[in-house]
């Protein structure tokens, strides 16, 4: 039973962590190499890793998606998709896909004269599922090892921690002020019932005893 409990807890922790890791913004420092647009098939379950940039795109089985190709300072490659999130999930409210595409094209640089950019994105790259992180912003940085403070994540995770603290306080307050008094009431009622029952039992026994010629107490 203990193993079941811990497995369950571990599973919940993994799901919560994965969800946050997928959804929260991350930044890579990269050199932008190229951009391209490719038709994507969207009619299997990996659909959930692609955006729904507008209302009709939810029902399309394929459409063109923009991509940004980049190389990190360690030589590893990274490919980002460039899609509107619109008003949907995750709540980045990105509507400037075409602008970002232009910026990315403007930011291209060669290996010999590299220009480094911090590219903000969310999501995962997975070669087997053919999924790509979605780029949401681009800004130049001085060097490939520029220090970036993740303020957005600090604010979001801080807010989340405060919210959980609030829910916990709320539950504690609810229990203290509403459930506990009810339980006390119930306990009092139960005690009263119990007492009445034992009194009645006493009377019944007395009546039985009276048949055996014992005096009533």
């Amino acid at each position: 039973m203990r193993y079941v409990k811990w497995t369950f807890r571990l599973l919940v922790a993994i799901i919560v962590f994965s969800f946050l890791h997928y959804t929260l913004p991350q930044r890579d420092i990269v050199r932008i190499v190229n951009t391209y647009e490719e038709r994507q098939d969207l009619n299997d379950w990996t659909r959930l890793f692609w955006s729904v940039p507008d209302d009709q795109s939810g029902t399309l089985s394929n459409r063109d998606v923009q991509f940004i190709q980049a190389v990190k300072s360690n030589g590893k490659t990274m490919v980002y998709r460039n899609e509107d999130t619109g008003w949907g999930w995750p709540p980045y409210f990105k509507f400037d896909t075409a602008n970002l595409y232009t910026e990315a094209n403007d930011a291209k640089s060669t290996k010999d004269a590299p220009e480094w950019y911090a590219i903000t994105h969310y999501g995962w790259r997975n070669e087997f599922l053919s999924i790509f992180p979605n780029a949401v912003g681009l800004r130049p940085v001085d060097s490939p090892d520029a220090r970036l403070v993740p303020w957005t994540n600090i604010i979001i995770l801080g807010g989340l921690a405060l919210f959980i603290l609030f829910l916990w306080r709320l539950w504690a307050q609810f229990r203290e002020r509403t459930i506990d008094p009810l339980l006390e009431d119930a306990e009092d009622t139960w005690d009263a019932v119990d007492e009445r029952a034992s009194k009645a039992r006493g009377r019944f026994r007395g009546w039985l005893d009276s048949w055996r010629g014992k005096p009533r107490k």
Partner: peptide, 12 residues
């Protein structure tokens, strides 16, 4: 927050 976010994502 949403208004600020829209501005930051699209116009900054």
């Amino acid at each position: 927050a949403v208004t600020v976010l829209i501005y930051m994502t699209n116009f900054m």
